[in-house]
Every structure is written in C-alpha cells, then in structure tokens.
C-alpha cells in the first residue's frame, strides 16, 4: 500500500482533529474575550486592589510557558479540587482561555487607553453616567482599535493549542502522532499536519481581515490619530 493511500485512509481521523483544535482556539479566544475585557476595564477604571489583582493575574499567566500551566492544572490543580477525572480537552480549553484572558486584557487595555480623554469628557458633559459613557462611547471605539491586535491572537492560539498534546487532548498534533505510531510513516504525516495548520491559519486571517474591513470607519483606527 502506497504512502499516499495510507495517508488518505487516515485523513478523516486527522480531520476530526481540526474540530478539536478549533475548539481549543475558540475556548481561548472566547474565554479570553469574556474575561479579558472586564479585566482591562478593572485595570483602568477599578479601585487600587482590583488593579493589583488584575496586574498579578496578568503577570502570572503571561510569564509562564503553556506547558507548565497545562501540567499545573492537569496534574495539580484540577485533581486537587476533586476534578481529577475531567476530560483533558476541558483542562486544555480552560488553561488556554485563562491565558488568553491575560494577553487579551492587555490588548484591550492599550486600546482603551489610546482613546483621547475628550471622548469621555464630551460624553459626561451630555449627562451620560460613567457606565453609559464607557459602554456607548469608549468601548465601541476601543474594540475597533483592538481588533487588529486581537486578530493576531488567532494564529498565536492556533499554534499554541498544539501544546495540549502534552496532556493528551486529541487535537491535530496528538492525532498525527497516533497515526505515526500506527503506520510508521513519519515525515509525510507530520508535514500534512503542518500544512493543515498553515491552511487554518491562512483561512482564519482572511476571515478576520474581511471583518476588519467591514467594521472600518473613515479616518478611524488603522491610520491612527492624525485626522482631526
């Protein structure tokens, strides 16, 4: 049997790994967004203790290798709180999400801080509460500014998700390795795996570029300040 046909036989099994890989990416981006935005707001508008807590969280999760975090949570923390039997995918998704939140919060923070103070002043002068001003004026602008940086998280997380191999999540790399150990065809299978990753990267970035174009506002973001 030729190498090509063996690879073709295993392709369906490998492709299922795409769903798992994308699932991990979705966890990371999703949890990262849901947690990262409030964290950014807390770090900017929050009280001193809130700022310190968020700052420490970010320092911890950004300072550590994913591999160490995965080991810590998979072998240490989850079993430690009685969740030892939990599927590796959930541990992987959680860790990537918590980590994503740390990174994304800093993207959002930078974007929010780049908006001129006048926007808040004008909003408050119209009688908006601080909350309404943040929600209706600051965030819609900040999210647009953050989008390019946020988009960059996608390829990062895509490649990062493969580290979940180390705790046995059945994503693309894990499945490739399983196929390798079954078929003893090493290099071609790993290269197919690499090409799938590169393709996913390409497609995702194209999609995000289209989204960026769609949300674009004349003279705003991308080009930066300048226009007045």
């Amino acid at each position: 049997m030729s190498t090509e046909s063996i690879i073709l036989d295993w392709l369906p099994y490998l492709s299922e790994g795409i769903a798992v890989t994308l699932g991990l990416v979705a966890c990371s981006l999703g949890i990262g967004l849901i947690m990262g935005l409030p964290m950014a707001l807390g770090q900017i508008y929050g009280s001193r203790p809130v700022q310190i807590i968020v700052g420490t969280y970010v320092w911890f999760f950004r300072g550590l290798p994913v591999l160490v975090l995965l080991f810590l949570f998979y072998f240490g923390i989850f079993p430690g709180i009685g969740l030892g039997g939990i599927p590796a995918f959930i541990v992987g998704g959680t860790v990537l999400g918590l980590r994503g939140a740390a990174y994304q919060s800093q993207i959002f923070r930078g974007a929010i801080q780049s908006i001129s103070e006048g926007q808040m002043t004008a909003a408050r002068s119209l009688g908006m509460s601080r909350f309404t001003a943040i929600k209706s004026i600051i965030l819609p602008q900040a999210m647009r500014i953050a989008l390019p940086g946020w988009s960059n998280e996608y390829p990062e997380m895509l490649t990062e998700s493969s580290v979940c191999y180390a705790i046995g999540v059945a994503e693309l790399l894990t499945r490739s390795s399983q196929i390798v150990s079954q078929t003893y065809i090493t290099l071609p299978i790993y290269i197919v795996c690499a090409l799938i990753f590169i393709l996913l990267n390409y497609i995702g970035m194209k999609g995000l570029t289209i989204l960026e174009k769609k949300l674009k506002i004349p003279g705003f973001g991308g080009g930066g300040e300048g226009a007045l």
């Binding site: 490649t159 493969s162 580290v163 790399l173 490739s176 690499a194 390409y202």
Partner: peptide
C-alpha cells in the same frame, strides 16, 4: 510562523 513549534520539533 504557521507551523506549531511542537510539531516542528517532532518533524
């Protein structure tokens, strides 16, 4: 940039 580093190490 597109190939995960771990996969590269395996290769």
């Amino acid at each position: 940039k597109g190939c995960p580093l771990l996969l590269l190490l395996f290769i």
